[in-house]
Amino acid sequence: MKKINEAIRFNRFDDLSNLEEVWVFGYGSLIWRPVFRHSEKIVGKINGFHRRFYQSDMTYRGTPEYPARVATLLKDPTGKAETYGCAFKLFGKNEISAGIKYLNTREGENGGYSLIVEEFHSCERSPIPVLVYTATRENYYFTGKQPLEELSDIIANASGLTGPNTEYLFRVAEWQREFLPLVEDDHLYELTRMTKEKVVKIEK
Rank of each mutant, 00 (worst) to 15 (best):
L103A: 08
G85I: 02
A87L: 08
I96Y: 03
G85T: 03
A98I: 04
T105I: 15
N110V: 06
K101P: 03
E107D: 05
Y84N: 06
G85S: 04
T105D: 14
F88N: 00
E95G: 01
G99K: 04
L90W: 02
A98K: 14
G112W: 06
I96K: 04
K89H: 03
C86H: 02
L90G: 06
Y102S: 07
N94V: 07
E109W: 08
E109T: 14
T105C: 14
G92Q: 10
G108T: 08
F88R: 00
G112Y: 12
E95H: 08
G85E: 00
L103P: 02
G111Q: 03
K93V: 07
G108C: 05
C86E: 01
Y102T: 13
G108M: 03
G99Q: 06
G108P: 01
L103D: 10
I96R: 07
N104S: 06
N104E: 12
N110R: 08
Y84I: 06
K93T: 14
L103H: 08
S97K: 15
G85V: 06
Y113G: 10
G112V: 06
L103V: 04
K101S: 15
L103W: 11
G99P: 04
E107S: 02
L90R: 02
Y102W: 08
S97L: 15
L103S: 03
G111R: 02
G85P: 00
Y102A: 09
I96Q: 00
K101I: 14
I100P: 01
L90N: 01
S97H: 14
A87G: 03
E107Q: 09
A87Y: 03
E95Y: 05
G111K: 01
K89N: 13
A98F: 03
C86K: 00
N104F: 14
N110E: 11
N94A: 13
R106H: 12
G99Y: 02
G111E: 04
I100M: 10
G112C: 08
K101V: 09
G92I: 06
S97Y: 10
A87E: 00
K101N: 14
C86L: 07
K89I: 10
K93S: 15
Y113M: 13
A98D: 14
G92T: 01
E109F: 05
I96D: 07
N94M: 13
Y102M: 11
G99H: 07
R106F: 01
F88Q: 00
G85M: 01
T105E: 12
T105N: 15
Y84L: 01
R106G: 11
S97A: 15
G111H: 01
E109D: 13
G99R: 02
E107L: 09
F88A: 09
E109S: 13
C86T: 01
E95C: 11
E95V: 05
Y84T: 05
K101D: 13
F88T: 04
G112T: 07
I96G: 02
Y84D: 01
Y113Q: 07
I96M: 11
G111P: 00
L103E: 09
